[in-house]
Design a protein around this nucleic acid. Structure first.
Length: 255
DNA sequence: ATGACTGAGCATCTCAGA
């Protein structure tokens, strides 16, 4: 079973790139973040390739969608703990085969001043509350996507982030670890405990060429899923293609 | 000392990204 997560930075701008990648990699599930469009504007090409889609879209910003080869059931289109008035499209969750798969795009937190940062923390609290409820029910849960968190110092190249960046502030990291310690396994770190495993490189200043990246795209696995983990790594080749996303796919293989 | 990108929108600049 192959499951991938990918912040594509605009699904319409990346349509051909994603189709070609699906053709090569043939994952069972693909979790997309930053689709930057409403569901009505979502490209039809994935359906033509045999993928069903669960889409939570938004005009211009954010937006998540999960593609699945086999039938899926949508179980959530937002985090239950957030107010219903919250308009940001950042979470979609499906039941698929024996699994529950949450696809998330966590707020960056560097824009909008302290209010913007507080929203990130609020969102992380809501994510943990939801995750704990599912784990308590022994749901076979995968929570994957763009977390916008560098868990440890090894997860960002020296010099690419300031000391107060929202991706690594202590309040951010405390919430990330609190989520992880609720009972998850970080799939990539479980298989590569040490060293950089970047998933993002800024478009600016030749960051990719200098390998000055970040590890911010994560896949967290509930215990019953973690015991089936065979492989988990970013597909770095994708960053070298024409007009790439600034993130690469992270691919998981489960027995 | 230093690099200066990308997508989308009531668009030829602004915002957000991270």
């Amino acid at each position: 079973m192959r499951i991938a997560t990918w912040n594509v930075n605009g699904v319409r701008a990346r349509e051909k790139t994603i189709c070609a990648w699906l053709e090569r990699e043939k994952p069972d599930l693909l979790l997309l973040q930053e689709i930057k469009c409403e569901a009505t504007a979502f490209p039809p090409c994935f359906a033509a390739m045999g993928y069903e889609a669960a889409i939570v879209g938004q005009k211009g910003f954010n937006g998540v969608a999960t593609l699945a080869r086999q039938p899926l059931t949508v179980t959530a289109q937002r985090l239950p703990a957030l107010p219903e008035t919250d308009a940001q499209a950042r979470y979609v969750e499906i039941a698929w085969q024996e699994l529950r798969v949450g696809n998330l795009y966590l707020p960056n937190g560097n824009s909008g001043g302290e209010t913007g940062y507080e929203y990130k923390l609020l969102w992380m609290d809501a994510l943990r509350a939801h995750a704990e409820a599912l784990l308590a029910d022994e749901v076979k849960l995968i929570l994957a996507g763009d977390y916008n968190v560098c868990p440890e110092d090894v997860d960002f190249a020296p010099g690419v982030l300031g000391p107060d960046d929202a991706l690594l502030r202590p309040e951010t990291r405390a919430r990330y670890w609190s989520l992880l310690w609720a009972g998850f396994t970080d799939a990539v770190r479980a298989l590569k405990p040490r060293g950089p495993v970047y998933t993002f490189w800024d478009y600016q200043a030749g960051c990719w060429q200098k390998d000055k990246g970040l590890r911010i795209d994560h896949a967290l696995l509930a215990p019953a899923v973690a015991e089936r983990l065979v492989a988990a790594e970013p597909d770095r080749q994708e960053r070298d293609r024409d007009s790439p996303s600034d993130h690469v796919p992270v691919i998981l293989e489960l027995a």
